[in-house]
Design a protein around this nucleic acid. Structure first.
Lengths: 228, 228
DNA sequence: CTTTGTATTTTGTTGCAACAAAAATGGCGC
DNA sequence: GCGCCATTTTTGTTGCAACAAAATACAAAG
């Protein structure tokens, strides 16, 4: 009994309101519940989540530490606008981290993982056909993180998730255009083929391509916004 | 006046106790004030820093989110032991992030930066000669982050600092052996030469070498501990 | 209409106490 | 000596109120 205590204490359901609030806010950010510039106040979040100010404040503090929220003033936390410089930096970081994750994933890939990826890709295509962009975005994330998890590097995955959370709110609004272009389909196909060959370098290249494609499109839309 | 508000509000001295507590605890961690396994309790930290429990809790929460502290049980936060797997993961992450930072740094390097690096290297050598290992460690960090800051990527630097904070406590205790071997001196020399040539790839290689050297030594000492 | 100065409202931070839960302690049986 | 269980102590979490400070709304002047 004493031996399982140290290993399994996380198993019990999360009774910590702070962590629950963090997870919920994180989810809403991921799902496009907020737009860049939206103010995050302790009291409004506490009301929205039905908790008191302490857990709400914990959630905001943590997301701020991770870069998913930023200070716009001494007493003002907002969902960040991603400028061109920010986008460049986060992209370079993503290339480094997700490239590493992909490279490490190849060694731990099994056939059933590839089958699962094929299923997810079918889901993505279906979602695109029915113009269910929010779903497509979700499946796209599933695709990426299924591979990244194969790396067996939990801390690395947490870092990658933090980067996605940074670009998410800015990315989400203009997904329709992205989806129409279907730029991700070819890259995902390349990734699956690389995985079948257990070719770590090719897998990395496929994901880097995907990241770079997304970067170019996001940057273009950023310039469009500032230009007109 | 309105234009400077958004840009300069950070200039005012930090009146937030939570951030001050975070900085202080961070500093103590960096300077070897705690060893792996040490318990971090809200009340003891609050006493140690002369603040109430809220800012102390904030500091612990943030360091925990960054991985510098870990949960060892539902109500127990400790300074983490770095196992061999953890060390491998953090090293791969460091290679990715610090490699990127070094590569980006080359483009922004000016002559006076190289001069400063030469000065720091002299400080390192002096500290090693006088067996002031704690000082040597500090100057070593100065050396690395002076280069990393040249990348102009503040978020990347924050990520790198978080990784250093993870390995710090485990690294600190066995520095004397490291210093005696002087393994870093050659790598730093390579880095300076690469910087003089503005050779980004060579600069990256020099820092990767430095990280890998440290990894091998730390891993060896880890195996020694578990073996005997 | 824009701008400037003022008043009002909102907000984050901090300290603190209560509570439940986990950890440390000590004693008991073997 | 060693493991196990009950008791005591310690601990994190949570909610809340007070306060200072910043943001906002508003009014007046140019």
């Amino acid at each position: 009994m004493a031996s399982m205590t140290a290993a399994n204490w996380k198993t019990g359901q999360t009774i910590r309101l702070g962590e629950a609030a963090y997870g919920e806010l994180r989810d809403r950010l991921t799902r496009g519940g907020y737009r860049p510039g939206d103010k995050m106040t302790v009291r409004s979040l506490a009301d929205a989540l039905g908790v008191s100010s302490t857990p709400a404040r914990d959630a905001i503090n943590r997301l701020t530490a991770e870069g998913a929220l930023v200070y716009a003033g001494p007493k003002t936390v907002i969902v960040p606008f991603l400028g061109e410089d920010d986008l460049r930096e986060v992209t370079l970081i993503r290339l480094a981290l997700e490239g590493l994750a992909a490279e490490q994933a190849a060694a731990h890939c099994q056939d059933h993982h590839i089958e699962k990826l094929l299923e997810i890709q079918i889901d993505i295509n279906k979602s695109l056909e029915t113009k269910a962009y929010s779903e497509a975005l979700w499946h796209n994330k599933e695709f990426h993180f299924l591979v990244y998890r194969l790396s067996g590097m939990p801390h690395l995955i947490a870092l990658i998730e933090a980067q996605w959370l940074r670009v998410g709110p800015s990315f989400y609004g203009l997904y329709p255009e992205f989806a129409e272009a279907r730029h991700g389909v070819r890259n995902h196909q390349m990734a699956i083929e690389a995985l079948q060959d257990r070719d770590a370098k090719a897998l990395r290249a496929a994901f880097e391509n995907d990241i770079r494609d997304g970067y170019r499109r996001l940057r273009a839309s950023l310039r469009q916004d500032s230009g007109g």
